[in-house]
Measured scan of single mutants.
Amino acid sequence: NQASVVANQLIPINTALTLVMMRSEVVTPVGIPAEDIPRLVGMQVNRAVPLGTTLMPDMVKGYA
């Protein structure tokens, strides 16, 4: 099963992502693939992302 990117903490709206904010986990539904974590660093979320939430492509500005 493919691992997805999951929020390791509450990520406030418009926050630029850092490695410490994300972890990989096998979840359903599948979100952004864990191998894209390096690409996500520095990108901003367009909404608040609660701890444990799977990051979906539409949550990250410029990802989709």
Rank of each mutant, 00 (worst) to 15 (best):
T53Y: 13
Q2P: 15
V41N: 03
R23K: 11
T54L: 10
G52W: 08
T15C: 02
S24K: 07
A64C: 15
N46K: 07
V5E: 00
A64R: 04
S4K: 02
D36Q: 09
Q2Y: 07
V49E: 01
N8R: 14
K61L: 13
L17Q: 00
N46I: 13
R39V: 07
Q9E: 11
R47D: 15
P33R: 11
P57R: 11
V60Q: 01
P29I: 14
V45A: 15
I32K: 01
M59S: 08
R39G: 12
L40W: 02
S4R: 02
M56V: 10
M56I: 11
A34I: 15
G31H: 02
R39S: 04
G31Q: 05
A16V: 05
L55K: 01
Y63T: 04
V45Y: 00
L10P: 08
L19M: 14
G62K: 08
S4P: 00
A34F: 06
Q2M: 10
S4A: 12
Q9S: 12
P12T: 06
D58F: 12
N46C: 14
M59T: 05
P38I: 06
E25S: 08
P33S: 12
K61M: 07
Y63D: 03
R39W: 03
G62E: 13
V49Y: 01
I13G: 04
D36F: 05
P29W: 10
T28I: 05
V49W: 02
T54P: 05
R23G: 04
E35L: 06
L10R: 06
G31I: 02
Q2S: 13
S24I: 08
I13V: 06
P33Y: 12
T54G: 05
V5Y: 01
N14Q: 04
L19V: 06
V26Q: 13
L55D: 00
V45F: 01
P38G: 05
P38R: 08
M59V: 04
D36Y: 07
Q44G: 07
L10S: 04
M21F: 13
V30T: 13
Q2L: 09
G42H: 06
N8L: 12
M59F: 15
N8D: 14
T53P: 00
D58M: 09
I13Y: 06
N1D: 15
Q2K: 02
Q44M: 14
L10E: 09
M59G: 06
G52R: 10
T18K: 05
P38Q: 13
T15I: 06
V49P: 01
V45H: 00
G42N: 09
P38N: 14
M56R: 12
N1A: 15
L17R: 00
V5W: 01
P29E: 14
S24E: 12
L55F: 08
M43T: 09
A7D: 00
A34R: 03
R23N: 04
T54F: 10
M59P: 00
N46D: 09
M22K: 00
G52V: 01
M59K: 02
A3Q: 05
I32W: 02
I37Q: 14
I11M: 12
I37F: 08
P57S: 10
V27H: 06
P50V: 15
R39P: 03
T15L: 04
I32R: 00
Q2H: 14
R39M: 09
G52C: 04
A64Q: 14
M56Q: 09
P12F: 13
I11S: 00
A48Q: 09
N8Y: 15
P33K: 06
N1V: 15
M59A: 12
T15G: 05
A48E: 14
I11W: 01
I37D: 00
P29V: 10
E35H: 10
R23D: 02
K61R: 11
V49Q: 03
L55P: 00
R39Q: 06
I37S: 14
Q9A: 04
A7L: 11
D58Y: 10
V27S: 04
M21G: 02
M43Q: 15
